[in-house]
Design a protein around this nucleic acid. Structure first.
Lengths: 126, 126
DNA sequence: TGCTTGTTTGTGCCATGGTGCAAGTATTGC
DNA sequence: GCAATACTTGCACCATGGCACAAACAAGCA
């Protein structure tokens, strides 16, 4: 079998062609969702509260229109950072702790793996 | 002393007022830098190669102008994801493995901490 | 001093996206 | 049904940002 594919790629071009766990974990949607200060503030509030919070309640933590808060929360939900649940007229949002931490830790593991791979180290799947 | 400040915040509004490790770790600049697909591709290539790569070499891994690659690399460097070093005419970029993984792991730890804090659990600094 | 290579910076174009306001939808209570 | 509450969606405005092209800058070489 191709032993070469078990070593780190020699050039960025060959690295781009090769599939690795990194490609799945470096999710642009998640990082794009976390790239806005207002959204980070909302997410931080949900994490700190560590419970389900209503949209109107969450809106009190920053100075933007409630419609903007609603949109930001929807963006965070699409990215997998929070989940929502409707109860009557109220929609509750909560941080997805497990999903967030595993996404971060899995990525850290994948990056560590790349760092440890050397041209002469077998078993590399970077 | 204020025992209440040692419990999780009860509302998102009070959570926003409170300083916690999360506020420092949820860095918009880092996530904004990681929020673009082209930049993620460049970073992935640098991680997979696990060595210093020249700008022109890195440019071969995606189909955008070299000037765009240069700007993306500068953005990644400002965010702390990569470092650069000039050697003659050539500028070498490399992934900052330790910085990246510690940023991710520290954030995971802070989020975990929030998840475990309960209103009756003392010592909370979320 | 040119000439070449490697990279960055200036500029304009265009798409994306954050925002407020207003209108619409969903659900409950009277 | 009607009004009130809670949230979402439509829309217009504007700032940001990714992009290509061209020019400038940096460094080595003839």
């Amino acid at each position: 079998m191709a032993q070469t594919s078990k070593n780190p790629p020699r050039t960025p071009a060959s690295a781009a062609r090769r599939r690795s766990p990194l490609d799945r974990l470096l999710d642009p949607e998640l990082f794009k969702a976390l790239g806005d200060p207002t959204r980070l503030l909302l997410l931080a509030c949900l994490c700190k509260c560590a419970r389900e919070c209503a949209v109107s309640e969450i809106g009190a933590c920053c100075h933007v229109d409630l419609s903007v808060v609603s949109r930001h929360l929807a963006t965070l939900e699409r990215a997998g950072a929070v989940r929502s649940r409707r109860e009557g007229r109220t929609v509750f949002y909560a941080a997805r702790f497990d999903h967030l931490t595993s996404a971060l830790r899995d990525l850290a593991v994948a990056i560590d793996h790349c760092a440890q791979c050397r041209p002469d180290s077998p078993g590399c799947d970077c």
